[in-house]
């Protein structure tokens, strides 16, 4: 059951997101839409060569999609694009319930979302930010 999906990490990132603000001079701006509920986020990234120098998001959505996007930004800022893509892949693997315990641990805060693997109706919410990130980076390569 899903009773403990709303753990403290998730609710904190939802209520007090660190990266939810508009960024005027982003290099990459991409909208991600959750087709099952119509919620959307705008992901904004600033690049420094191969490195994601800064990032933010705006939009509306459920706690799961908002917290997941906020956690994601905390993890990928300062990382190289291909490192971020690897994390995205690992996150998707975790959400599909296919990641090992070590892999889940390596996802740091994002591992707070691991129980979504048992909640098929909410998978799209959890991956919204990551999916948008992957698309944004793929487009920029």
């Amino acid at each position: 059951m899903s009773s403990n999906i709303y753990n403290e990490i998730l609710t904190e990132h939802n209520i007090r997101p660190e990266f939810k603000y508009d960024m005027e001079d982003a290099d990459i701006v991409l909208e991600g839409v959750n087709p099952s509920c119509g919620d959307n986020i705008w992901l904004k990234l600033k690049l420094d060569g191969d490195v994601i120098a800064d990032g933010s998001f705006i939009g509306t959505g459920c706690a799961i999609s908002q917290a997941s996007a906020d956690i994601m930004l905390g993890m990928i800022i300062g990382k190289k694009k291909d490192e971020a893509l690897q994390m995205a892949e690992l996150f998707m693997k975790m959400i599909k319930g296919e990641a090992t315990d070590e892999e889940i641990d390596s996802l740091e805060e994002a591992s707070a979302l691991k129980d979504i693997a048992h909640m098929p109706a909410r998978v799209k919410c959890a991956v919204l930010g990551w999916r948008t990130l992957k698309e944004a980076i793929d487009n920029s390569l």
Binding site: I5, C37, T60, C62, I64
Partner: peptide, 15 residues
């Protein structure tokens, strides 16, 4: 207030 309907229903579903 402040809670997305899908989170409201998620809590209800878990109950």
């Amino acid at each position: 207030d402040d809670v997305h309907p899908h989170d409201v229903s998620e809590v209800l579903i878990s109950d």
